[in-house]
Each structure stands twice: as structure tokens, then as C-alpha cells.
Design a protein around this nucleic acid. Structure first.
Length: 425
RNA sequence: GGAGAGAUGGCAGAGUGGUCUAUUGCACCGGCUUGCUAAGCCGGAGUGGGGUUUUCCUCACCGCAGGUUCGAAUCCUGUUCUCUCCGCCA
């Protein structure tokens, strides 16, 4: 969410930003409603002040007649104040509704463009796509043959888009998680296992829409809880309403959670196998920091994502996401797209991670602040998030890139300490 | 799951419906005094919003959310967390 004052003082920039991000906005109405809200607010406060003044004077009044009159006056002032306040609340809600539709401002260097066509490849990983001298299988062919991936079982117990992982693939899954946690632990991240459910207002604070036809998340009936789509939600929400000491930042967290996504409206684009599923495990990075630290930390998160996929020996490219493809909260976003030899006709790049700098967009909604010693007041922190591994897609990348002619899969050395073998299958 | 107790400023800890401002102490900042790195005295100091524009004024905030009242830290309801005890369980 953008700051109200900032919007009013930078109408043209905000309007231009909405245009570049393909978001409709009505700032004219915003300005007009804000004007009315301000007037009502001033009136409400004045009535309130008078009522307070009057209430204080009553304590000293001994004469019953005077006292009764003052009580009646107080009653009326309070009623006037309530009426004015009601209008303020109503206008405030209108403003907030508009404010919530506005996306974050974009980084000046983020590629301009209304969709992913404008995304810019900025780097490649250490490893090049392999030349295979045998017919390439996709991960589902590899996995089904060994009893590693069972979508039919998932459908039987749960529904379409759910699956069981089995056999040695479970070991690979756990090994990848351990690799990520160990790697992040050495880079000052605090490992965390988070709740898989969160309250709807936390989801909203992070920038998800927990309700409505567009929603990407599952809700639990008769509660205000949702299944999280990512640990970003709980990690970001962990400090909602809190104030950090400036010197305790940056705070780096690494969270392990299950992630649940309805993939509503994605049916037509539904992809084969583990690529687009309703539940997966993710190791997520999240950072709270000072405003002047966030650009550098964003590069750091991107670097870590690269290191992790280099350790898996998987080829990938890094994409600087165009303004129109950023999503609401992001100021800038990098995606890692891994080479998936089994995708499409001859292999395709598939998104495996993304890292966003959300600046103060989430912290303003969640009211996460920091305080500097010797300075008055507090400021909103900046937040960043990045995928270490989304296990579903990381598994695709490892299986398909390291498959052997006999259907077994080579395990890269970085995983071997956790897996205790150099191949599976 | 049941019963009870509690939550007040950076910390400790008073405050059971109205005295102009939430008492006091510790810690903190400034000044004064004093022959010691100490003590004493005086003053200041929280967060957020609005107004004013450099000086202030004002509103809200006593776990959180509501309610009663002219007036709530105080009374009522709900809720979260902590502690004690009981029950249950992996």
C-alpha cells in the first residue's frame, strides 16, 4: 500500500506507474474523497475536544442544576462527534479501498512493459543445458515408473492436482530442503518452521486477496483462517504491529512451510505433473530491513538463489521482471527460470524461484516499523522475499536434468551429504 | 478442555468512575551545584494522526476489540498471551 500523503503529492508519478503496470486507478476520486474526509475529521475532532472539555468541568460542578445542564450538553456534543466520526470512517474506508488497488511504485531500472514479453534476461547459471544422447523423459515419466510420484492416489484421497511423493524421491525432497536450510544458516538466516494457516487480515497485509473469485488461496470454513500460499505470509505477518530497533536489522528469516494454491482460473494453463499443483513444500527467505538496505539485500537474495541452483547443477536464467508482470507489492522482482528438458517439445525454461523487493508496501499494511536510537518517531521497514526452493519445481529440475539413459537420476555432490547416495532409481 | 490469577511507559511498580496533564523509583538526556568516574538539586523525555509552521495547539493510545457513561487504566462483554492448579494426549 502506498502512503496517502505520498499519493496526493505525487499524483502524476502514481498515475504513470499504474499505467506501466497495467492497473486501472481513479485518483481524481481519491483526491476528492480525501478532501471531504479531512473536513469531516476536523469537525469530529473539534466536537470531541469540546466534549472532553465539558466532561472535565462537570467534576467540579457542585450545583445540581448546572450539573444537569452540562451533562445534557455533553450528551449532545458526543452525539455530534459520533455523527461526524461515522462519516470519517465511511470516507476512510472508501479511500482505503482505492489505496489497496494501487500497486507499489516500480524500481527505476525495472524493464517497462505491460506483460511478461518485456521481461529481460540478465544472467545465466554456471551450467548449460545438457545434450542428451538418449530419448529424454519428463519428470512424470521418470517418477511414475519408480513409484515416486502418484497423482492418481492424490486424486483418490484429495482431488485433482494433489499427489503423493514416494520412495527415494522423498529422500531427494528432504535433502534439497536440508541443503537450503544449511546454506541459509551460513548466511545469517534464522531457520523457521511456520504455521500453514494464517488469518485473512495477514494475507491482505502481504498483498494476497483471501476472498473473491480471483482468490488464489483456500479458506477454512467458519473461521477467518486461510491455508497459506507461501511462508512469506506468516514470516511477514510474524512482526505485524511490531517496532524493531534499527540496529537489529536486517533480520533474515528462512521459513519452511507447505504452500496451498487453488490455481483458480489456471485450468487452461494447467501444466503436466508437478509444475502447477495445489500443494507443495517451500523453503522461503524473508528479510526485514532498513530502507537504504533493501536494494543490496535484493541482489543478495538473487545471488543466493543462483548459488542454490548452481549447487543443484541445474541450468537457469535470471529474468528482471517487467513492470506489468510485477504483481501489486513488488518494487522489483527477479525470477529464476530453470531449464526443464522434459517440458514442451524440446525442453523449456520454467520459473522455479522469484525474489521481490516490496519496499514499505507490505510493512505499511502490516504496520511493521523500526526505531533509530536518539531519533524521534518510527519508520516503516522494508521487506523482501525470495524462494530458496519450491520443492515441486526443484524436483522437476533435478529429475529432468540429471536423468540417465536407464531412468535413474544422478545426485549432484552438494546433495550427497544429505542423501548418502550418488544416484536414485 | 476446566478453574483461578494477571497484562500499565525502556524496566520496576502504584492507580476501583471526575482534583489541569497516569503517582513514584531505576535507567536515559539537558542544566545547576560540589575538590574525585560519585552524590545532590532543577528540568526534559513515548507512539500514531490532524492543525500551525519552528513555536506551539489538539486528538487517540494503560495487551487487543467492542460496550456502558457527560466522563473509563478503573465498570461490563468478547478475545489473545503469561503464570498456577486439574484433566487429556503425541
Amino acid at each position: 500500500m502506498l502512503d496517502r500523503k505520498y499519493i496526493l503529492q505525487n499524483l502524476d508519478a502514481v498515475r504513470q506507474n499504474c499505467l506501466e503496470r497495467g492497473v486501472k486507478c481513479d485518483l481524481t476520486q481519491f483526491v476528492e474523497v480525501e478532501q471531504r474526509r479531512k473536513e469531516a475529521d476536523t469537525a469530529a475532532q473539534e466536537f470531541n475536544r469540546l466534549a472532553n472539555e465539558n466532561a472535565k468541568s462537570i467534576g467540579g460542578l457542585k450545583d445540581p442544576q448546572q450539573r444537569a445542564e452540562a451533562v445534557e450538553a455533553g450528551r449532545q456534543l458526543r452525539a455530534q462527534k459520533d455523527a461526524a466520526q461515522k462519516l470519517v470512517d465511511q470516507l476512510d474506508a472508501e479511500l482505503l479501498a482505492i489505496q489497496r488497488t494501487l500497486p507499489n511504485m516500480a524500481h527505476p531500472n525495472a524493464p517497462r512493459g505491460v506483460d511478461d514479453q518485456a521481461n529481460l534476461e540478465v544472467a545465466r547459471g554456471k551450467y548449460q543445458p545438457r545434450q542428451f544422447d538418449f530419448p529424454v523423459k519428463d519428470h512424470l515419466q521418470l517418477g511414475s515408473a519408480k513409484g515416486w510420484i502418484d497423482f492418481e492416489g492424490g486424486a483418490r484421497t484429495t482431488g485433482q492436482g494433489f499427489y503423493f511423493l514416494g520412495g527415494e524421491l522423498v529422500l531427494l525432497d528432504l535433502a534439497i530442503q536440508q541443503l537450503a536450510v544449511e546454506h541459509l544458516l551460513q548466511r545469517s538466516f534464522v531457520p523457521t518452521i511456520t504455521p500453514d494457516l494464517a488469518r485473512a487480515d495477514i494475507l491482505e497485509g502481504i498483498g494476497f486477496m483471501p476472498r473473491g473469485p480471483e482468490t488464489q488461496v483456500y479458506s477454512v470454513e467458519n473461521t477467518d483462517l486461510c491455508l497459506v500460499g507461501t511462508a512469506e505470509i506468516t514470516l511477514g505477518g510474524l512482526y505485524a504491529g511490531q517496532t524493531f530497533e534499527a540496529e537489529s536489522l536486517p533480520l533474515r528469516l528462512c521459513g519452511i512451510s507447505h504452500c496451498y494454491r487453488t490455481e483458480a482460473g489456471a485450468a487452461g494453463r494447467a501444466s503436466r505433473g508437478l509444475y502447477r499443483v495445489h500443494q507443495f513444500t517451500k523453503v522461503e527467505m524473508f528479510v526485514f530491513c532498513l530502507p537504504d538496505q533493501s536494494d543490496a539485500l535484493h541482489e543478495e537474495l538473487r545471488q543466493i538463489e543462483c548459488e542454490l541452483f548452481d549447487l543443484l547443477e541445474v541450468p537457469y536464467r535470471v529474468v528482471d521482471t517487467a513492470t506489468g508482470d510485477l504483481g501489486g507489492p513488488a518494487y522489483r522482482k527477479y525470477d529464476l527460470e530453470a531449464w526443464m528438458p522434459g517440458r514442451g517439445e524440446h525442453g523449456e525454461w520454467g520459473e522455479v524461484t522469484s525474489t521481490s523487493n516490496c519496499t514499505d508496501y507490505q510493512s505499511r499494511r502490516l504496520n511493521v516499523r523500526y526505531k533509530e536510537k536518539e531519533k524521534k518517531g518510527t519508520q516503516f521497514v522494508h521487506t523482501l522475499n525470495g524462494t530458496a526452493f519450491a520443492l515441486s519445481r526443484a524436483l522437476i529440475a533435478v529429475l529432468e536434468n540429471h536423468q540417465q539413459a536407464d531412468g535413474s537420476v544422478r545426485i549432484p555432490p552438494a546433495l550427497q551429504p544429505y542423501l548418502r547416495r550418488d544416484r536414485i532409481g
